[in-house]
Design a protein around this nucleic acid. Structure first.
Lengths: 219, 219
DNA sequence: CTCGTTCTGTTGAAAATTCAACAGATTTAT
DNA sequence: ATAAATCTGTTGAATTTTCAACAGAACGAG
């Protein structure tokens, strides 16, 4: 576990926890680490939502696929970030999304019940963990609001431009690389891929942006 | 305050709090009650997100209106439910949505900082309140997932049917009244109103549903 | 290095959404 | 009760999106 300390210290779940206590706490929580190859399923839709996941290395996508196979990408999770916490904390009996490794990834899994309920050792950090979870869930809610601001736009162009402008603001640069290929971007924006490609070309012709592969520059 | 006890006991923020402690706690938290007429703004976009609101009577809508005046309805909040908690807990400096009274409503407002930080009286309920907020935020995240499941559908028909089927499941009845008029439903589903009306008529002609005003029956 | 797979941009046709306008129904205000 | 305002369903035209198909580019495996 020791080699993950650097990442775990950045994890919002453990903020305010002293490093010397962290390893002990992980044992107490029954944390375990699993590895997943690219495209492998970390948690499948329909399973009980018992675990909170922490990305240690690599990244995962939270996706939902409907009856007709349409994929919708809800978010991407990077090292030190959490996933599954909302479903675990709300104690829903089946998780409605699938978590897929985006690349070879190491994932820490912690049974949520171990966090929420005081352990026999009474290790005393539960209050801090619950506070951290609350903060994290509030932040996630904000992120969902942002995603809904994007997808609530009615046209492909508006969705794309809203996304790019938000991303530019987030990284504080007018030139940046996005974490999606075309199909993934389309599934995130909830539009048709070919229409998205066409729109990007159009924006380029109109001099509104430059782009090359996944790198964009707003002009 | 006493007359609101019945509703406040149902409020997820206060679950696990003894009734005899509730009134005292409200004073400690500096809770206050304000009244709003129909269509009046409870909290306007852009203001600092300091307050958690609790609907006591009536109801409010959480809406976002973009540059071009397109309205998007994010959710409706009914008595004993919370709003604004995500923005307040995440301590964002400007709330990105507007809260509007749906009908004459009484709203309790509590400064979030009073909940998160232990008060001078050390009244000892903060841990429970923080746990409750965490639970509430997890539940809200689930609700957002459901809304995104609706709006991620590509056609008006699919959005409408997904919404109606979810609503039927929620109230456990195939015949039910929805809380939206046509324009509001369109703004919630993020589609064009006239197209929505047309789609409802079409579904009725096809024998898939019955409807009269805001009452629907799935066949 | 080569072959096979995946990704991307383009295109045209079909389908759906949006938009504006309107008339009848319903609700609200006086 | 009447008038004014709002809400709803319909329609047709303009615009967009979706869908399927394809060819070249980029990538990965062996």
């Amino acid at each position: 576990m020791k080699k993950y300390l650097k990442i775990l210290r950045e994890c919002p779940l453990f903020s305010g926890i002293e490093e010397e206590n962290l390893l002990r706490m992980l044992t107490c929580l029954g944390a375990r680490v699993e590895s997943f190859d690219k495209k492998y399923t970390v948690i499948a839709e329909g399973n009980p939502a018992k675990y909170i996941g922490i990305v240690l290395t690599g990244s995962v996508q939270i996706v939902r696929i409907d009856y007709f196979g349409n994929r919708s990408i809800l978010s991407e999770i990077y090292p030190s970030e959490l996933f599954g916490e909302a479903f675990a904390c709300a104690e829903v009996d089946a998780i409605p999304v699938t978590v897929i490794a985006n690349e070879p990834s190491e994932i820490m899994l912690i049974e949520c019940a171990h966090i929420l309920h005081t352990c026999e050792n009474n290790c005393g950090f539960h209050q801090q963990l619950i506070f951290n979870l609350m903060k994290d869930l509030a932040t996630k809610t904000i992120l969902f609001h942002q995603k809904m601001e994007i997808t609530s736009k009615r046209s492909t162009r508006e969705k794309l431009m809203t996304y790019l402008m938000m991303y530019a603001k987030k990284v504080n640069a007018s030139r940046f690389e996005i974490p999606f290929d075309r199909q993934e971007l389309a599934d995130y924006l909830e539009v048709d891929r070919s229409g998205l490609s066409a729109e990007i070309s159009k924006l380029r012709r109109e001099g509104i942006l430059e782009s090359e592969k996944n790198t964009f520059e707003l002009l």
